[in-house]
Design a binder for these strands. Structure first.
Lengths: 235, 235
DNA sequence: AAATTTGTATGTTATATAACATAGTTTTAT
DNA sequence: ATAAAACTATGTTATATAACATACAAATTT
């Protein structure tokens, strides 16, 4: 942690994916270390696209990534925002389906690719690993269903407020404890909240007028967290 | 199958849940048979409610069940329609959370309850069982995300058409190959399609006028499946 | 059988939000 | 350095759908 503070960025390794690595035996750890690749992505890179076939498990070792689905009339919908150390693209892998969403890099990212065969072998010998995936899926499914209801039923203000709260939960704040530690375009914010870009901009402005937020470009400060949560809750 | 045709209804047993039972070894089968209970529910019974703690794996051996979440202003949203031999309530079980949705019987149902401890024991000894749950979750998560996009982006006609197609995929047709084999109130249809009851009724009527459907009370015949799919697709 | 409740049908009005338009601003490319 | 593109901002209009109202039909209860 402190090593990251000065200008010596620490290269992440697959050991930094505790929910994968920490579960394994010594022998399995070695097998995993010998059988994965590390890929670096820069901003705006596409990691995978809707319709492609997954080839292995992807672990986000560092960076920020958005996962989105193309909607009915080309309106993208962001279905998930990922942060290290999350798995990505694993739904399609385990469902033995094509990807139903695309993945794009928001901030420079490091990804570990574990070939399908390798992860399946590990799961065969290590029941705790399967259990970890089951738990992961069960949580994500719960979140997906919760979001379905709120995105369809809450009004614009409630949807945007909720999205900001969700982003805070995922990425947290910068050191000042009020600046959201993720910097999205208004369009991404809109696509994450099921609204048009115009309405995201407008609603953001009204939150600023109400002193709930302070906004400067893509920098969003949450000034009044209680009110933001209340707006989210009431819909 | 033919035994069901005459008036000798066959009592289902947990052996009728192939994705659970067929995977097990002889020893495990015996363990399961000795350690589960069978519960009968009648129409409108509540199987579990939002906020309750799951106590085991529920397998729908026979019947039809709706799973719904209470929305923002008491507007229920049906997030899933289950049919035998589906698992129900297993998301909360494996996520180690409270139920985030309630489950209500649509048609008289038989449910097998496998205590949490028992199913976890089976999973510890049988990796294929865990894999089956993983696959099940991965598919359901894909469906949930697909639905989120369509329920938020498609227009009313597209949403209702899609719901009818989904119901057809889940429950199929009666012998005439056009009557939907599930009989929902207009309100349920609306809650499954993210619209008001009035609009479900109205849209249903317009489909009848267009000769896409024939409706008589809760009996819905799909006359023109191609057109229904087209309406669903175009949104 | 009468009364009450619940579900279905349809018309009217209100409103949230998308769609469109224009312009200023910042970023990226040449 | 200049041009082009992408992003942000705000005002106006159009529209899909919710909300409301009324009526009838069917089911359930007394």
């Amino acid at each position: 942690m402190p090593a990251k503070k000065n200008n010596t960025p620490v290269e992440p390794t697959i050991k930094d994916i505790p929910k994968l690595y920490n579960i394994l035996t010594e022998e399995e750890k070695e097998y995993l270390l010998d059988n994965h690749t590390t890929i670096h992505y820069k901003k705006n890179d596409i990691i995978y696209q809707e319709g492609e076939k997954p080839t292995g498990l992807l672990c986000l070792g560092e960076g920020k990534v958005k996962i989105f689905k193309e909607g009915v009339s080309r309106r993208d919908q962001i279905i998930r925002m990922a942060t290290a150390p999350d798995f990505i693209g694993y739904r399609a892998l385990f469902a033995e389906e094509m990807h139903i969403a695309s993945s794009e890099v928001i901030e420079p990212s490091t990804i570990f690719h574990v070939p399908k065969k390798v992860i399946y072998n590990l799961m065969k010998t290590n029941p705790a690993l399967s259990m970890a995936f089951i738990k992961s899926f069960a949580s994500e499914l719960g979140f997906a269903r919760y979001r379905t209801v709120t995105l369809t039923q809450k009004h614009i203000r409630g949807r945007l407020a909720e999205s900001l709260c969700v982003l805070k939960d995922i990425y947290g704040f910068e050191e000042d404890q009020q600046t959201l530690a993720v910097y999205l375009s208004r369009e991404d914010l809109a696509n994450f909240s099921n609204m048009t870009t115009s309405n995201a901009i407008r609603t953001l402005s009204s939150f600023v007028n109400e002193k709930v937020l302070a906004v400067n470009g893509r920098v969003i400060k949450i000034l009044d967290s209680d009110t933001l949560h209340r707006i989210s809750r009431l819909g």
